[in-house]
Design a protein around this nucleic acid. Structure first.
Lengths: 208, 208, 208, 208
DNA sequence: CATGAATGAGGTTTCATTCAT
DNA sequence: TATGAATGAAACCTCATTCAT
């Protein structure tokens, strides 16, 4: 039996272990969500124990996605919190921050690309609603800070952020079709360069 | 037993029936792909018969998606084939064409939002590869025409088209999170306005 | 692959095979319902095939129970259809018929004793309702014939049949507690004798 | 942490609390046994604590059933202890006593109807044996008193009691099928009237 | 060509019980 | 005594696909 996690700290630690393990198995895998059984085994826990920490398998991956998108927002927040340069410099910093975060968290886009059809059916309806509401609210807060940092008209920051996210996820899904070389799978390096360029183009147009 | 389709024509007709029925059932449904059995029943065919016309269930929906994206490209082609106005007018026509097509084919985005996790596992690997290659090639052809219509440097048209598609699919998936009203599900009307605006912003930046 | 049952006849035969196998496994087992997998394997069929013939595992056992109770009713019907002797002789024949049927179908009482808690949760709600309605209706028909055979006031036959069935199932469940020998499990032979006696007592009182 | 129950008295009190809570939850529920976790939570105790007072979940509900059947026997005992009237009056008092007790303890029949398949699998074999032996023994004692009160031949009282119990539990389970109104669920009031009548019929026949 | 019976892998979740604290 | 974290077995049913008729 795994050591019992009585302290709050230990429980958080265990929760993190499950999340990290799930992410790792997903990245190592073939694109499908790893089964609850595999996650538990890889954590050296019993299946039931996983369900003490997450109500649903879908909840595990929703948490991973939330983490990922949270990180993206924080990357933006870090810039808007300290922005003192020109507007162009700030935008460049934001774009770089977004791309860097995605580079460090490759599971985010792969999870996201699974689409509505895979994770959502594995979640309880109310959890799904809570997840969406949380994302929306956090996004709005970041957007306000962006408005101030760039002195944008109210609401513009939300619009720009939203469309940037759209480019991020959409480009990931569309990118394979843009490779001229034929059936070659494009590298993630190429993707990140492409994304940075696309974001710059978009922000240029949005802030014109 | 359904009438046997011997003539080439009859076979195409039957194929189209299956596609249309699958699309209808998907749109009427809850977001999941209708089962092969349901599609067959709705067509008044036996399950086995459907497999005479499509090798896998995924192939049916891949064909629907191909149709949808083909239509998007044709919308662009119609503009680039006849463009005689200013660059701005051409861009506006392209954006309007894209949005109009999406409005008329709502199944495209809903299918697309299912992501890699639903249709791809239902397809044979080589079919998937062929599907992607076909899309890539057709896209390149449209992109060339776009280069010429807008006198863009070679390759720029492909880039712009690809990123436009990225905005289309990404915005559809991101849009629910941008609704400030809270738990309200945004309307497709709102989506189309948002999309048109986003595309204009992007093209402005891209062609600056 | 098992031979395909295309003809109506073959399908009925296969259905019967599943029922008989399920009954056998239940009787051989420890009192729990055999799993769908075991039933299928014992029939040399795939699990899915069983679900072509029954919508639910519970439906299999509900069908067995229905069969059993149907048989009890038929045992009564056989007597009431031909009754020409005295009332006492008719009653004796009915009681004997009931007990004989139970002797030949030992699975009926064992299934019945599982109670509401085991089979019902394995059934679809509408199937359960249909099952009950069917039983009620068939019972009423038998009861009418009983009224005529014994020239009972209308409704009396239903009452008597119902209470006889109650004695049957109730005595089976209560009988272990009446064994004076202590922890010895009573034999089914003893049970059948006890049941016959109890039914005679009841009918004597009911028809007094 | 709930207050620790050191004194014998406190422990009995806690045991009673668990029993009462389990009965309440069962009656409020959908017909299934409440889970051990729910019982504990409703008692404001930890799951483990419940297992300090009962060895298994089944033991809780077996105790409830024992209580119920004990009450039935006591209802009979109260009559046989003071019987001075005619035999018919005594029988009428016994039947009335049985029905009254059932009216006041509706959980008894609902628990009983769960059958062998739900509570027994949740009990340790030796507990089950002990439970049955206890019931048998207590029943025999009551039966002796009944023999004397009604001056029955030795053993007749046991037989009559046993068969009365059989009618009680069997009629409860059979009653829904006797409702002529179709899919209407019969009321408990109707059941009690029916039961009283059935018992009278049976005793009349048994003592004839 | 058309049919539809047969296949069988695959994974989530519950919950009674234990035992370290 | 009380707690509650950990355990892990157990089984249902769906559905894409095949192939005998």
């Amino acid at each position: 039996m795994a050591r019992k996690a009585f302290a709050r700290e230990d429980k958080d630690e265990r929760r993190r272990l499950i999340l990290a393990t799930a992410a790792r198995l997903f990245m190592e895998g073939d694109g499908n969500l790893p089964s609850a059984a595999r996650i538990a085994a890889a954590c050296d826990l019993a299946k039931g124990t996983v369900y003490l920490y997450f109500t649903t398998k879908g909840a595990i991956f929703a948490a991973l996605q939330a983490q990922g998108w949270d990180g993206l927002r924080e990357a933006v927040d870090r810039v808007t919190a300290t922005a003192i340069g020109t507007r162009d410099a700030t935008v460049a910093a934001i774009v770089a921050g977004l791309v860097d975060h995605l580079r460090e968290h490759p599971e985010l886009l792969r999870l996201d690309a699974l689409g509505h059809g895979v994770i959502e059916p594995n979640m309880a309806p109310d959890e799904l609603a809570a997840f969406k509401a949380g994302q929306t609210k956090a996004l709005a807060a970041s957007a306000d800070r962006l408005d101030q940092a760039l002195t944008l008209p109210p609401g513009k920051g939300l619009q720009v952020l939203l469309r940037s996210y759209a480019l991020v996820r959409g480009l990931w899904q569309s990118f394979p079709f843009g490779t001229t070389g034929g059936d070659r799978t494009p590298t993630t390096g190429e993707f990140h360069a492409e994304l940075a360029d696309a974001l710059h183009e978009y922000w240029r147009g949005a802030l014109a």
